[in-house]
Every structure is written in structure tokens, then in C-alpha cells.
Write a protein that binds this DNA or RNA. Structure first.
Length: 211
DNA sequence: GCGACGATGGGCT
DNA sequence: GCCCATCGTCGCA
């Protein structure tokens, strides 16, 4: 997607990202997954957003141009991937919370910290169904913070993979994990995810539309 | 300096 | 459902 795609309000970009294809070039392999869950974080007034603390070393990327990757570290061990939104100078981002794995699944298995624990117990779609899981599976860490998702030749980017998402498949809820955030931000319905019916349809691979 | 805590995940009860 | 690993960041001395 081009930079214009990311220039809007996080709430709009978060919904637009559902069904898009997260792509990663790693060691000569192409890893891809359909984005199935997102959350919007918008501005300094949003007390769930890291930008509530203003411009700091950590939040700097969120204040920069849209279409950059904001990758941060949390819980002492996990990385999270966001796409920066809004015009240059206004902070906001969309957290990529889950993808449906498509290509490079064996590489994803290797990249997960405990690949031995993944098979045959867990179906592949469970390997990338959390924000920290997908960063592991796609080899994303602090090195990717700030990279331009829209630039030519980058090894991390998002495309329109041609996957159609029906309105019936989209669930809208409040954001996850904001335990100590005050209202109304704690309950702001800024999370979107593709439900089980939608995932089932993605699994059949017949949701592709013609360009 | 220091303490609290986190946009989580995995294991166990 | 509960517990906790593990450390960067922030707020408040």
C-alpha cells in the first residue's frame, strides 16, 4: 500500500487493513499472512496510546510520516508491530494483532521460539494469532522499527492481496490489555477482527477477487 | 535512583 | 482462570 493509504485516522486505517497481506522477505524466503485483527491508537488524548506521554525516544516514530513501522518491546520479552498513521507530525498507529499465514509457513515454524511445541497440536493459523506471535513468526523485532513500509525493495511491507472481506465476518470490540487505562479509552471500540466464519472462508482460499 | 507496570504468551490448576 | 517470565519506559522523587 502507498503512503496515502496510511495518512488517515487510525480508526479508518485499522479497518482498511483487514484482509491486506503482510509480507516479509527473509533469507531469500517470502513470508506472507492475511491481516485478520487490528487495533487503532490515535493521538495524545487517547490514554491507551503510547503517545499519551508525548514525544519521547520510544514514541518518536509515531510522530513521523505515515506508512512507517512502529515496533516496540513489552513485557520484557515481546515485540509488537504497528503501522504509523495520520499526517506527519500527528501521532497514531494501528497494531497488527493477528494474521492468517499463507506463504513461508515452515519458516514461520522455525522462527517461533518453541517450534517443537507447535506441531501437531496447534493448527498453523494459531501460530500467528497474537501480536507477539506474529512478530516472532515473521522475524520482526526492534531492528524493523521506523522502516518505511511503502519504500521500494524493503523486506517488510503490506499489499492488497486481493482478499475480499465480507461485512458479516468483521467483529468490532474494545481493545485488549488496557487494564489500568481510564475510561472512555479503556472501552473504546477500536479493535476489529475477522470472526471464525471469516477465517473458515479464508481457509478455503476462494475469497480472492480479480484485479 | 527507583518502583510500577505493560497494546502478551504459555503452562498449569 | 491464575501465575509469571523478564526488561524497557515512564513518572516521580
Amino acid at each position: 500500500m502507498d503512503q496515502h493509504f496510511y495518512t488517515g485516522h487510525s480508526v479508518d486505517v485499522a479497518q482498511a487493513l483487514l484482509g491486506k497481506l503482510l509480507c516479509r522477505k527473509l533469507d531469500g524466503h517470502l513470508l506472507t499472512g492475511i491481516i485478520t485483527e487490528t487495533e487503532a491508537y490515535q493521538g495524545e488524548s487517547d490514554l491507551g496510546c503510547h503517545a499519551k506521554s508525548g514525544r519521547t525516544n520510544r514514541t518518536e516514530v509515531m510522530y513521523g510520516p505515515p506508512g512507517r513501522a512502529y515496533v516496540y518491546f513489552t513485557y520484557g520479552m515481546h515485540w509488537m508491530l504497528n503501522a504509523v498513521t495520520n499526517p506527519d507530525g500527528f501521532p497514531g498507529a494501528v497494531l497488527i494483532r493477528a494474521v492468517f499465514p499463507l506463504d513461508g509457513i515452515t519458516q514461520m515454524q522455525t522462527l517461533r521460539k518453541r517450534p517443537d511445541k507447535l506441531t501437531p497440536h496447534h493448527p498453523e493459523k494459531r501460530w500467528t494469532d497474537g501480536p507477539a506471535k506474529l512478530c516472532q513468526a515473521f522475524g520482526i523485532s526492534g531492528r524493523e522499527n521506523g522502516i518505511n513500509l511503502c519504500a521500494e525493495g524493503v523486506n517488510l511491507y503490506i499489499t492488497d492481496g486481493g482478499t475480499a472481506i465480507l461485512p458479516d465476518w468483521v467483529e468490532n470490540t474494545s481493545r485488549i490489555g488496557l487494564y489500568t487505562v481510564h475510561e472512555p479509552w479503556k472501552s473504546m471500540p477500536w479493535r476489529w477482527r475477522i470472526n471464525d466464519l471469516g477465517i473458515e472462508n479464508l481457509s478455503t482460499g476462494i475469497t480472492q477477487y480479480a484485479f
